[in-house]
Design a binder for these strands. Sequence first.
DNA 1: GAAGACGGCGCC
DNA 2: AAAGGGCGCCGTCTTC
Length: 562
Amino acid sequence: MSDRWAIAATPDGGAELAPLGPDGLPAGGVRREPSLVEAVRGRPGVARWVWRSTAAVYPRLLAAGVRVDRCYDIEDAETLLLGHEGRHGEPRSAAAALARLRHAPVPPDPPQRAAEPGSQSSLFEPQPVHVPLDDLAAVYADQQRRHDATAHPDRMRLLTATESAGMLVAAEMTAAGLPWRADVHRAVLGELLGERYAGGEPRRLAELADEISAAFGRRVRPDLPADVVRAFAQAGVKVSSTRRWEIESIDHPAVKPLIEYKRLYRIHTAHGWSWLQDWVRDGRLRTEYLPGGTVSGRWVTNGAGALQIPKVIRRAVVADPGWRLVVADADQLEPRVLAAISRDPGLMEVAGRDADLYQSISDRAFASDREQAKLAVLGAVYGQTSGDGLRNLAVLRRRFPRAVAYVDDAARAGEEGRLVRTWLGRTCPPAATAGDQDGEGVPQEDQPSGPAGAPGEFVPGYASTNARARGRFTRNFVVQGSAADWALVMLAALRRACAGLAAELVFFQHDEVIVHCPAEEAPAVTAAIREAADLAGRVTFGDTPVRFPFTTAVVECYADAK
DNA sequence: GAAGACGGCGCC
DNA sequence: AAAGGGCGCCGTCTTC
């Protein structure tokens, strides 16, 4: 049996499929079968399924109990390849890719829609435009050639293959759901917010609002920033906003209850009773994971705000009876990634140990002040512009010149309007936002774009402010995005390691993963996570001494992991 | 009444 | 001590 097969779902639930030859085109005749699910189930020897879109095909297979080892997601690869080619805005559907290949009019992409609570999500929507299998294969074969034209074809192939694996992980996590105890969640809400008055207002919020009003000497609505700013002004305190960092140093009796109100109000509105009603069913939090949903390659979720769950609410994440949660958190991922991509000798040396990286850096350069070292590193990665961070950055630059030069170069590229890429080749979108001047982007040749910033009307200070913001973005992009590259490779390896176990991946959040498994599998899962991290370091970044340790915990409740 | 901007804050 | 990067989602306010 050929190791790669292409498959296309037909509108009646059937499939067209064919084995692919070395050129990526069908090597035998195209078969038509009445059931997509049975077509895949009956061919366990296929090493990689090439299909239009994982989100469109795989949930149906999972619902029927069919898993696949590997896939190649044509529309995801199209997105990555277009980005690398500096053509971010162009339609990415298979139909569009085919039209470009045929020099035909290119159809726009169908609009995305947000998840609605309780719906089965976009994953079960009907196919948009049916692309016949021969045409799909033609697009695939052309994509293989386009990989060869990139700066690092081997890395680009790894990127598309790995993000395809990520699509499988995402569909499986979406189908599995995160174990969620609604009764525990309700108990936490009761403790924090008190019982609800008629109309849904929690007692504790009402009490805090009263305290705040009493402190100001008049009725104040703490959920209205404008009202709070006015109240402070009447009390003789000028504030430009009611953000916590701005008001917390003010000496006024309203500050303490106000900050507490904001904390609890947030929990009530974003992760309270109605959230529970909307997103938790049958003991699982239901959301949809979207790999590569951000420009840097980080994932997003569609629905439930599942990557922003407050720590206090994590008490509701509890393993099934007899099962455990293996919670694993990569230690100081971003500076380790910076060491690997910059190949800075000093930083690689400290990142070559499992010990706390910020502590190691502070021992070398910051008189053992870990917090200062951490702020300096984050300042370098985020583009800090003022304060202590700048002085610390100078220290960092002296000790780790290549690492700092790497992010400085990325920042300069951004300020000059050039493209930057992650280690594996994910490319940041050009500065000009969709639809204005310069629209069609800048192909490979990284041309300097004259005076930095936007063409068009010139407002003194405006262009340079934009250029600096752009520099901070590209500076961060190369590190955050390369960390996302690594995380994707790690996830793919971990998924493979869990294939023979009952264990399943149930959560992934940038540098943290949760596996739900029978208690007796927990040691094997823990070992698999460490092996996946090591493997990902080697596969992603090649031959470097940099290590990627995880902090792992085997717990029954997520909140006990930290 | 729907859509979008904005302030604010949770997570990494 | 100062207010950098990436997101999603909420409620309010504004606009059409």
